[in-house]
Design a protein around this nucleic acid. Structure first.
Length: 177
DNA sequence: CCCTGATTCGC
DNA sequence: GCGAATCAGG
């Protein structure tokens, strides 16, 4: 019980760190934590000094020329650059008639830029269950990308799966009033 | 258009 | 300390 999570508890911070260093985007982490916006996550990340995961530019683009009343701030400690994410698994997967019939969907599947596909054995909670291929064949796989809590699909496929009328947008700005 | 993180600044 | 608003880039 206690709070439903309106503060940055240790657990949350830990999860935040984990997910962040795991390579998840701020919006994904925000969705995962719940009750927080992507901005909140980013803000916290910066406050914790976790910023600059795989990026390293440091002074290269004057952000906003507004009122700069803040000190130059300290240079980011930076982190050891490295996050080898070997993701290569083209998986042959012949196109079936069904898939051809799906046309657009096939196109979507092929266009999926992220993650390796997984078998049902490797399918874990919070993994995208978007089917790929013929379920009757052993080559059948799932997307396997990080899914949004509460949803069976990842960000990308969730949008494809639930296309009511474009009103979704992930109810991001709706949270504000 | 969608998304990403970065920064500022009022609270 | 927190996060919305804003900025800047992909």
């Amino acid at each position: 019980m206690t709070d439903a999570g309106v503060t940055w508890t240790d657990e949350r911070v830990e999860l935040l760190k984990k997910l962040w260093s795991d390579g998840l985007s701020a919006s994904q982490i925000a969705a995962e934590l719940g009750n927080v916006t992507r901005n909140a996550v980013i803000g916290k990340v910066h406050r914790l000094g976790l910023s600059g995961r795989a990026k390293d530019k440091a002074a290269s683009a004057p952000q906003r020329p507004r009122k700069a009343s803040r000190a130059p701030s300290a240079p980011t400690p930076i982190t050891p650059p490295n996050r080898s994410n070997v993701v290569i698994a083209p998986i042959p997967q012949a196109v079936t008639l069904e898939e051809k019939a799906a046309g657009a969907l096939v196109d979507e599947d092929v266009a999926i830029p992220m993650s390796e596909r997984v078998t049902i054995m490797d399918l874990r909670e919070s993994m995208c269950r978007w089917p790929m291929g013929d379920p009757t064949k052993p080559e059948f796989r799932f997307c396997g990308a990080r899914s949004i809590t509460g949803l069976p699909y990842c960000n990308h496929h969730a949008r494809i799966a639930y296309q009511p009328v474009t009103d979704r947008r992930r109810e991001r700005k709706l949270a504000r009033a």
